[in-house]
Amino acid sequence: MDRKSLTTGQIVLGLLLLLAVALFVGYQRLSDSQKRFVQNLARQLPYLPARYAV
């Protein structure tokens, strides 16, 4: 693995981590009601590709 690709990989990983932290912090700041709205959609995410095929 050369130095440049390692740096790119690190940047991508860093960005993904930042995104995950932002999502986590954002989620924590939601009201209980808003959390239920998000949870209702999140639990259905795995089915979306299959539903798209119907």
């Binding site: 259905q44 089915y47 590709p49 299959a50 119907v54």
Partner: peptide, 8 residues
């Protein structure tokens, strides 16, 4: 895949 979708 459609079968999984319908059941879901």
């Amino acid at each position: 895949l459609a079968r999984v979708g319908v059941k879901s």
